[in-house]
Simulated assay, not measured.
Amino acid sequence: MSEASVSTPAPARPAHGLSSFASRYGALIALAVLIFFNLIFTPNFATLQTLNVNLTQVAAIVIVAVGMTLVIATGGIDLSVGSLMAIAGALAPMIFMGTLFPVGTIWLAVTLAIALALIAATLFGAFNGWLIARFGIQPIVATLVLFIAGRGIAQVMTNGNLQSFKVPEFQWIGLGRVFGLPVQVVLMVILVALAAWILQRTVFGRQLLAIGGNEKAAVLSGVPVNRVKIAVYAISGFLSGIAGLVVIAINSSSDANVVGLGMELDAIAAVAVGGTLLTGGRASVLGTLLGALTIQLVTYTLLANGVPDAAALVVQAAIILVAVWLQQAGRQA
């Protein structure tokens, strides 16, 4: 599992190889066990249709979780991602359907819809970062503002009404295929790879990890802490906007009341299960991908074997608890 980290010097501790290994590779091990179990006990698991269903369902979560990984790596949290999905999902149809203003061709309308929706989500994300950087507001409080108000904005924009549409030029991002793969899955892979490269190979990646590892030391080292924080939350907003567009494209409709609902919890769960420290300073985007796949496959496995959906939620909560425990054990290793 690819991982990037920045840590401050600490006294030597006795090595606890097993707990450290489990904290780093637990998601990969769990995913392998789930795949092995399903290959034996779940009918029709080893089919392209099953693979397609699971990847399609997890793609939006991973896209949001990539942004959440970067935010958490700085020691922050972003509760507004679901609401920003709703805002982007509400704004785009209003543009390509001509509700806000008339647009000439459908391709121009779709291009403007996607661009303006993503710009709006990015600016709202940057607003979160500005509140945190400029006023020193705790991230959980700052992002709670748009967690509440953001969905209200989306509902006001649409008067709380469902926006149904059939626009293939737009829906390609959710229903189209590239070399036989769903577009959103290809997009998910590209974004995961790009974020992993940023964390491991760029100055910006090292800076955001330094902030999460020790913000005071980062300031003394000349890291532009405020700018990095604003940028990280802007990226989280941008990725939330992409996920919102993907979701409404798949559903052929946009409902501000439900788009992105609970997504912040799904994204945080994927990050935690994937091994990223929730206290910041270490991040694994590939781990986040594996964490999201693990949670998705747990749900699929339980439902495919007749376990009620409510029980699946309990199992997911237990997985998150184990992941956090392994993180603590790994930190003491």
Rank of each mutant, 00 (worst) to 15 (best):
I235W: 03
A231N: 04
G262E: 04
N257I: 09
V223I: 13
A231M: 02
I268V: 14
G237Y: 01
G244N: 11
V232I: 13
S252P: 07
V232P: 02
G222A: 14
V246T: 13
I268Q: 02
I230N: 11
S240E: 02
R227L: 08
S240G: 14
V258Q: 13
V246I: 14
I235V: 15
A231I: 11
V247E: 15
V258R: 08
L245C: 15
A267M: 06
L245T: 05
I250A: 13
I242H: 08
I248G: 03
V271A: 00
N251K: 10
A270L: 01
G241D: 03
A256R: 01
S240P: 04
M263V: 00
L265Q: 05
G244H: 11
L265T: 13
A243V: 13
V223R: 00
S221E: 10
N226K: 14
D266W: 12
I230Q: 06
G222P: 14
A243S: 13
N226Q: 10
V225A: 06
A267D: 00
G244S: 04
P224E: 03
Y233V: 07
V258A: 15
I230Y: 03
G244P: 00
D255C: 10
N251V: 13
A267P: 03
L261N: 12
E264I: 08
V225F: 10
V247C: 06
S240K: 01
G241Q: 04
G222E: 11
I248Q: 07
A231S: 11
V258H: 06
I230S: 05
V271P: 03
V247A: 14
L245I: 10
L245G: 05
A249C: 02
A243E: 15
D255M: 09
A256Q: 07
A256Y: 00
M263I: 08
A234Y: 09
A269L: 00
A256C: 09
A234M: 05
